[in-house]
């Protein structure tokens, strides 16, 4: 900070050093490195305050037995060891992996298919694209409440329609049976997640130069060959990024589950994020909840590494 100008006016004796200081400041301001650091400062502060600090605090909390009312002590790995011996936690890890893998595996081909369809020259293309994006735009909690009604054991519109059509004779217990419930929440997640995959892949498709397809067509390549040898290799980097994001968002899903099932029935749809919330906030065990959240980090890092080393590099080589 430069000193206020009136200081030098009021105190003439200080004018000499004050002026020199100002000159030095001006010089510093012309230094690229100083200036660069200065410009980075706001972003850096934001990252440290909003990301690095909470993350570090969360990791630290995971090693303590802190509860809502007490400061807690450092307990090394006690939270983690106790979690590994907890049957509910083991079930929840299975649920989370199953939910993430299956939902992502459905979202990718569906999103790619939609993207390719939308990339064609069709009427009302921009309107259709906007419509496809809708599920992603609707607030999660709203769509979750809608699904809660769709899956209701007494008022489900799906059951009602099927009964009226004479296809089934009693209502489907969507959320009351553990496996039905798992598939139901996966369907809700896919519905919500597909637009993100589709629209991003569509953006990727549109960066591919049409001349490549023209050349391939002249060489007599079939549509499948064009897809296999032009679209897929050029799209791979985008696929890597999209699927990493998709996996991260699915893995850390909270709102859908919390609104539709609360993790029930008998914990069949509890995910690591919902269990972490319940243990830390409802149950008051902040340390254990933090440990649970921290245990998500290795999985998420794994997903990022996979896409970075597996997909990105291959994409760059092909491009």
């Amino acid at each position: 900070m430069t000193p206020p100008p009136q200081a030098s006016v009021a105190l003439p004796a200080a004018a000499g050093p004050g002026a020199r200081r100002r000159r030095r400041t001006a010089l510093l301001m012309q230094d690229r490195n100083v200036l660069g650091a200065l410009f980075l400062l706001p972003a850096g502060t934001l990252l440290i305050v909003l990301l690095a600090y909470p993350l570090a605090l969360g990791i630290w909390l995971g090693f303590t037995d802190r509860t809502v009312g007490t400061p807690g002590h450092f307990v090394w790995l006690e939270n983690y060891l106790s979690l590994f011996s907890d049957a509910v936690f083991r079930l929840v890890v299975f649920n989370t992996l199953f939910y993430t893998i299956v939902a992502s595996a459905i979202k990718f081909p569906l999103g790619l298919y939609l993207a390719i369809l939308l990339n064609r020259r069709i009427r009302f293309a921009s309107i259709l694209r906007a419509v496809v994006l809708l599920p992603f735009v609707v607030p999660t909690v709203l769509s979750a409440v809608a699904f809660w009604w769709i899956y209701d054991s007494q008022f489900s519109i799906i059951s009602w329609a099927l009964v009226k059509l004479g296809l089934i004779n009693h209502y489907i217990d969507f959320l009351g049976d553990p496996w039905n419930a798992r598939w139901s929440v996966i369907a809700a997640n896919v519905w919500r997640g597909v637009p993100f995959v589709a629209i991003t892949l569509l953006a990727g498709l549109q960066t591919i130069s049409p001349s490549l397809y023209e050349a391939a067509m002249l060489d007599g390549a079939t549509p499948i060959q064009r897809f296999r040898y032009i679209t897929l290799p050029l799209l791979t980097p985008i696929i890597g990024v999209v699927m990493t994001f998709s996996v991260l968002m699915t893995f850390a899903d909270f709102q859908l589950i919390y609104s539709i099932t609360r993790g029930g029935p008998i914990n069949a749809t509890h995910l690591m994020a919902t269990l972490s919330f319940e243990r830390a906030i409802t149950g008051g065990k902040l340390g254990e909840g933090a440990a649970l959240a921290n245990l998500m980090i290795p999985f998420l890092l794994g997903a990022i590494m996979f896409s970075y080393f597996g997909l990105q590099r291959r994409g760059r080589g092909a491009g």
Binding site: W148, S153, Q154, D173, G176, P265
Partner: peptide, 21 residues
């Protein structure tokens, strides 16, 4: 019980009772 109580959250029984189910 009626089917589906395993999926019931707090508002579910209100809805079912008021719908004469």
């Amino acid at each position: 019980f009626i089917e589906g109580v395993l999926s019931w959250l707090d508002p579910s029984n209100n809805k079912a009772f008021l719908a004469d189910q």
